[in-house]
Design a protein around this nucleic acid. Structure first.
Lengths: 174, 174
DNA sequence: TCATTATAGTTAGCTTCCTAATTATGTCAA
DNA sequence: TTGACATAATTAGGAAGCTAACTATAATGA
């Protein structure tokens, strides 16, 4: 499953929110304002990340694959697991791996024990690519977050956790 | 500009983060953890929203157009402004408006004073569609956020504001 | 045993975004 | 006034995701 998130350049004024709340009694003004802000900052962050990756000739999908492979002890994983962890379909993963393999960043190795399956391995070139990208990426991320105290970072994670919990309620009733 | 955000089902363990931080000294572990969590909750929220809209035969892009039109006093706006506010190209807006007009939810009216331009107006059917969707949407949103105190909501907005500020620093150096 | 069902990965065709080029109209200055 | 440039919207073609169908292989059970 993939998400296409628009940029939401234009957050509603307090007045507009109030007007909507009058028409729709179900509206919870502070919930809506927080939600929209969250959506906007999330997209802005992801866009900024994309810009960084583009500089290194990478797209977000392919980059996540490299990261996931690097997380593994043996730098190896199967496509279906990669797909699930990134949250794309297996069909999409086939395309991502095609691109990465063409660039020499990963290698498909047929699995002897189950001939339906394939092992995907991060190559030396793939590791080198990460070694080029990650310091840049982490430096930029540090800049974004440098205004936050450790307490605020911890608060943010707590709050996001609560929202994540609240979403189960959403799923139940849908 | 549009953002394609993957789902990130799999956040790194503390141990993996530590391993990355050793290889890449630029890494700021709490910044990364907060960032990934933010990305994940943002995408999950947006996905849940999409599911709600889909029930009402709407896509996120088209829905935002309806919202923006409803925000206007005269329920009217021009395509270029809509495009900028949602953060899509004018070409994309053309497609969104085509779909909405075909469904009778908006109406294109040629502008007399500048014949290059077009006025887009929310129709009665468009307003009716919003009146059907918004109570559902707001109710779900309330569920997601119900676990947050007013203080936490305000904290969240403050924190997101700081991150947004920090991103200017990112842009400067890119 | 072998037919059925399940699973891994891929392929084919669709959607909706994008960029770049195009058409029509407006603006401005020589 | 008219040529150059700017602007509004659209069209054409491309990218990267999706679903559904397909191929090959494995597992299961009558």
């Amino acid at each position: 499953m993939i998400l296409i998130m628009l940029q939401l350049r234009d957050l509603p004024t307090q007045e507009v929110l109030q007007r909507f709340a009058e028409r729709y009694p179900a509206a919870d003004v502070t919930a809506i304002a927080s939600f929209l802000m969250l959506l906007r900052v999330g997209t802005d962050l992801s866009l900024a990340l994309d810009a960084c990756l583009t500089k290194h000739d990478l797209l977000q999908g392919r980059w996540w694959v490299l990261i996931l492979l690097m997380r593994e002890q043996d730098l190896t994983c199967v496509p279906s697991v990669l797909a699930e962890k990134i949250g794309v379909t297996r069909a999409t993963m086939t395309g991502l791996l095609d691109g990465l393999e063409q660039g020499g960043l990963v290698q498909r190795i047929s699995a002897p024990q189950d001939r339906r399956s394939v092992q995907v391995k991060l190559t030396a070139a793939g590791q080198a690519k990460l070694d080029a990208v990650m310091p840049d990426y982490y430096t930029r991320l540090r800049l974004c977050m440098q205004g936050l105290s450790e307490n605020q970072r911890s608060d943010l994670q707590t709050i996001l956790g609560v929202i994540d919990q609240g979403m189960s309620a959403w799923d139940f009733n849908q």
